Amino acid sequence: MEVRTIKVFTTVDNINLHTQVVDMSMTYGQQFGPTYLDGADVTKIKPHNSHEGKTFYVLPNDDTLRVEAFEYYHTTDPSFLGRYMSALNHTKKWKYPQVNGLTSIKWADNNCYLATALLTLQQIELKFNPPALQDAYYRARAGEAANFCALILAYCNKTVGELGDVRETMSYLFQHANLDSCKRVLNVVCKTCGQQQTTLKGVEAVMYMGTLSYEQFKKGVQIPCTCGKQATKYLVQQESPFVMMSAPPAQYELKHGTFTCASEYTGNYQCGHYKHITSKETLYCIDGALLTKSSEYKGPITDVFYKENSYTTTIK
């Protein structure tokens, strides 16, 4: 009895394709271990004539594949690729409408935090270190965002349907971005203890939790000093293409032309909904596939993004 075979390709990165001759009487799992086709788990399936010449994702289970996976995804987590594939199996079914010149995501599976993050990423200057993220990001900007969303979920250790947080998501993504040249110098002034300067680099240099107003941050924000008295913390120097200011959701007025974009969060910790506000020729609110415009805006804002380049204080 002759062994019926077909020729397929296996890959971990969709760049390096490895030619395989597979036995049609055995499952993919018996031949390769966990195997995925377009995100779908085909591990328990036997090869079919229609699979001839198709590319299958496999887990990096030998040295060659491990090197290829690390170079593309910059992670050695053995569960990463499987999590990416199972997320992709959902995100490829989502709709990605162009809204006001940006790629958004039609609401499904509690994905409003991903839509808000995706919209924000198209408006701030950011370059990702893992080629996987950078490639998928370019495709997302062009309207094909399924891979990018699935990668975000995998890097953030999230599953489809789980509630997510924009600030946490951005923080994970910033860790995989090139923020080497970003720098922030802060000064804390206390009447009792004097003053202390701190220099922050990388992710810490672009994120701040405690106030939404970048102007206020430049002037000074009140913080408790270690001595128990009130101290003032203010920005001395900022070198970065953008800054992200966050605070627990509270009524906040966004003035046209003073910011790049913002995240609105309605609801409580267990259950809520994100919308995205962007400042173009007027203010726009993007909620999944829905767009509304207004000249002014007041609502429960939790993150505001500002364009920056270089700032030095005039406070002496």
Rank of each mutant, 00 (worst) to 15 (best):
T278A: 14
M170N: 00
E281F: 02
K316H: 11
E162D: 14
T159Q: 10
N16A: 07
N187W: 06
T75P: 01
V236L: 13
Y208W: 11
N14Q: 11
L88M: 06
K92S: 09
C225N: 03
T19E: 12
H48A: 11
V221W: 09
G161P: 02
L59T: 13
Y84K: 03
S294H: 14
A132F: 00
Q237Y: 13
S310A: 09
F148T: 01
T292P: 05
H51Y: 04
Y274D: 06
T292Q: 15
H176Q: 10
Y265K: 15
V58L: 11
K201N: 11
Q197F: 10
F9I: 11
K307G: 11
P47H: 02
L114M: 05
A205M: 01
E71Q: 10
T226C: 15
T75A: 06
S240V: 03
S213P: 07
G194P: 06
I277E: 04
T120A: 06
K127D: 15
T266H: 09
S240D: 05
Y36P: 01
V12W: 05
I45C: 09
S25V: 10
T211A: 13
G272R: 09
K229V: 04
Y137A: 06
G220T: 03
K183P: 02
Y306D: 05
I152K: 01
T11M: 03
Y155F: 03
T192Q: 11
V189E: 10
N100W: 08
V58D: 00
N89E: 08
P248R: 09
A177P: 00
A69M: 15
L65D: 07
P34S: 13
C190M: 01
S213G: 07
A289N: 11
Y96L: 02
V58R: 10
H276Q: 07
H276T: 03
Y73W: 02
L212N: 06
L153H: 03
Y73M: 01
T11L: 04
V67K: 15
L212T: 13
D109N: 07
P249H: 04
A140W: 00
K316E: 15
D287V: 00
C261D: 04
I105D: 04
Y137P: 01
N309W: 10
I105K: 02
C271R: 10
F174I: 04
H273K: 08
K158R: 10
T11P: 01
Q216E: 13
A150K: 01
E144K: 12
A262S: 06
N110I: 00
L173H: 01
V166C: 10
K95D: 13
G194T: 04
Q222N: 15
N100L: 09
K158V: 03
T11S: 06
P78Q: 07
A115E: 00
P34Y: 10
L126V: 10
V3C: 14
A150T: 01
L119N: 04
F128W: 10
E162C: 06
Y73C: 02
V21H: 12
I301R: 05
L118N: 02
Q222G: 14
Q122P: 02
I45P: 02
H256D: 07
S213L: 05
D63T: 14
T278R: 08
E204C: 04
G272C: 06
L186G: 02
G33Q: 01
L65N: 09
S79E: 14
L121T: 09
T64H: 12
H276N: 06
T192R: 12
Y138T: 12
C190S: 02
E264R: 03
Y297V: 06
Q238K: 05
Y36D: 00
G39I: 03
A154N: 00
D109A: 09
V243Y: 03
L283F: 12
R167G: 03
F70E: 08
E215C: 07
S25R: 12
Y138M: 15
H176I: 04
H90E: 07
R66Y: 10
K93D: 08
I15R: 09
A108G: 04
D165E: 10
F148N: 01
A205T: 06
Q251A: 12
V8L: 07
G288R: 03
D77S: 07
Y234V: 10
E239S: 13
G299W: 02
E281N: 06
C271D: 15
L283Q: 05
F174C: 03
T260K: 05
R83C: 06
F70Q: 11
F148L: 12
A136T: 08
H48F: 09
V243A: 07
T199F: 05
E162S: 11
N89V: 12
T226E: 14
N309K: 15
L59R: 08
V206F: 05
V243T: 06
T76C: 14
I286H: 06
R184P: 04
S279E: 08
K219P: 05
S181W: 13
I301K: 03
N187D: 06
A108E: 01
R4T: 14
R83Y: 00
D13C: 00
P47N: 00
L254S: 02
Y73I: 00
A145W: 08
Y73Q: 03
V243H: 04
F217W: 02
P241L: 04
T266K: 15
S263W: 01
L212H: 05
I286L: 05
H51Q: 08
V160L: 01
T199M: 08
V42Q: 08
G161V: 02
V221T: 07
T282C: 14
L173N: 00
Y73K: 04
I15E: 11
A231F: 02
A146N: 00
D303H: 04
C156K: 01
Y138D: 14
V12E: 09
V203F: 12
K233P: 02
C271K: 14
M24Y: 11
D13W: 08
K218F: 02
C182L: 03
N268D: 10
E68R: 10
Y284W: 12
A289D: 07
N309E: 09
V189G: 03
G210V: 06
E162Q: 08
S181A: 08
E52I: 10
Q20H: 12
G101S: 06
L88T: 02
G288H: 04
T76L: 11
Q175P: 02
P60S: 08
Q230K: 10
H90L: 10
Y138P: 10
H48C: 15
V8Y: 00
L37W: 14
G228R: 03
E204R: 08
K183M: 07
L173P: 00
Q20W: 07
S171E: 09
Y306V: 06
A150L: 00
N309C: 12
D23P: 10
P300C: 15
Y84P: 01
E162P: 01
Y155S: 00
L118A: 02
T312S: 10
V42L: 12
K92H: 10
K44I: 13
